[in-house]
Simulated assay, not measured.
Amino acid sequence: MINHSMTAGAALVVHGVDDLRLDPMQPAEPESDEAVVQIAYGGICGSDLHCWLHGAAGESVLREPLVLGHEVVGTVVQAAADGSGPAAGTRVAVHPATPGDDGARYPQDRPNLSPGCTYLGSAARYPHTQGAFSQYAALPARMLRPLPDGLPLRAAALAEPASVAWHAVARAGDVRGKRALVIGSGPIGCLAVAVLKRAGASEIIAVDVHEEPLERARLVGATGTILASDADAIAAVEADVTVESSGNHRGLDSAIRGTMRGGKVVMVGLLPSGAQPVAISLAITRELDLLGSFRFNTEMDEVLTALAEGSLHVDPVVTHEYPFSQALEAFATAKDAGRSGKVLISFIPETATGEI
């Protein structure tokens, strides 16, 4: 459900399963350390889709209306009153995490693992952490990353998911000259392909259940592609490093089977909670390193630099763009993984609609 007439001073709010609305909403009065950002673009993430389609993303269950959106870029229109952060007029990407601590142990140099961490547009905590799919958002100044000169806002809209992919590849260590396998060629998978190419992997084989995502993977650097139904071909890859980005137990099983003995499997796709039927015995007998990868830390700074200098080629990952007034159509397109990659919502008035 969506009210198309409500666009001025609006935010995209999920109220429950299949209940997505453009609600009238003015930005909250900023705290002294918050800046007001005029949002230009927002990318639809899988977690946004899950909240809309299922009322939950993993173990994060919707308990109150939630403004979605954490993949956002825009322009500061009001700087933080305490003088921190960028000045008005600065174009910025948003790092959506706020590390927290509830007393549990974790490495202090990996704040993405802090158990009290909150994320924009997340139902993990209650009250929920409201997101930024709105025309204006009051955001902590520490979240804002000024864009390098020459990097357009639209190109920077991929900075957050590209940082997730960058972090995942970094978990594997040095990939120069190595054979890489990427399971799942959705937006994160394709971004992982692009990051692997930039990092010097000599072979990058992408896997997906659909042909269109595989074509996008080739455009960003895959040297070969395999349909997910071809189990023998996947097993024959024997990759040094595999990135599992499907978020499906079958994908994780394929990742284990497609990795060489002594190789590494980076698990960035978020599987459902609970037991998963995968060939763990193979991981043991092959001495595979199974590495979790969750969000990111400071990688966004490197990603923005790489995007600005052109060394990270990700343009083909974006397949559709919709104006804010057509947000429901944007979400319907984004859930169709067979024909869409990253779907952007433009908060700029009178933006063209549909496929790029």
Rank of each mutant, 00 (worst) to 15 (best):
S229H: 06
S114Q: 11
A35C: 12
G58Y: 09
L144Q: 05
I226N: 00
L113E: 08
L49F: 13
A275N: 12
P277M: 07
T285Y: 13
D240Y: 01
A239E: 01
I356E: 03
G221H: 04
A236E: 06
P86I: 10
D109C: 09
T118F: 01
E299A: 09
H167K: 11
L62E: 10
V92T: 13
H313V: 14
A155I: 00
S32P: 08
P316F: 06
G310E: 02
Y322V: 02
A172Q: 03
P65E: 08
A104Q: 15
P96A: 14
R261G: 14
T259F: 02
G274D: 08
A168Q: 03
A157S: 15
L158A: 11
V314W: 04
R257S: 07
A199G: 00
G184C: 01
G131D: 09
L181I: 01
S163I: 02
A217H: 02
L214K: 06
D315K: 10
R171T: 00
G354Y: 02
D33Q: 12
L120D: 10
A279P: 15
S246F: 02
A40F: 11
L144F: 03
R21F: 05
G46Q: 09
C117W: 12
D232E: 14
L191T: 05
V175N: 06
C45V: 13
R21T: 10
G292Y: 06
T319A: 07
D301T: 15
P146A: 09
P111G: 08
T98V: 14
D174A: 03
G85H: 12
G292P: 11
E212S: 09
N297Q: 08
E309N: 15
M143K: 12
L271P: 00
E299P: 06
F133E: 03
L12N: 04
P161A: 10
P349F: 04
I356H: 12
T333V: 15
R91K: 15
V268Q: 11
G89L: 12
S311I: 10
L344H: 05
V195K: 07
S245Q: 01
S32E: 15
M143N: 15
R250V: 07
G116E: 11
A231D: 12
A206Q: 03
G89C: 13
I183H: 04
A124S: 13
A172N: 02
G200K: 01
A330R: 04
H70F: 08
I204T: 06
L147E: 05
R154Q: 14
A233P: 00
V61D: 09
L53Y: 05
V268P: 02
V94M: 09
A79M: 09
G173Y: 00
T223P: 03
T7L: 07
L22K: 05
H95Y: 09
F324P: 03
Q38G: 09
A57I: 01
Q326E: 15
D48I: 11
E34D: 13
P277Q: 05
I183S: 04
R295Y: 13
E287D: 14
A222G: 04
I39F: 12
R216H: 01
I205W: 04
G42H: 06
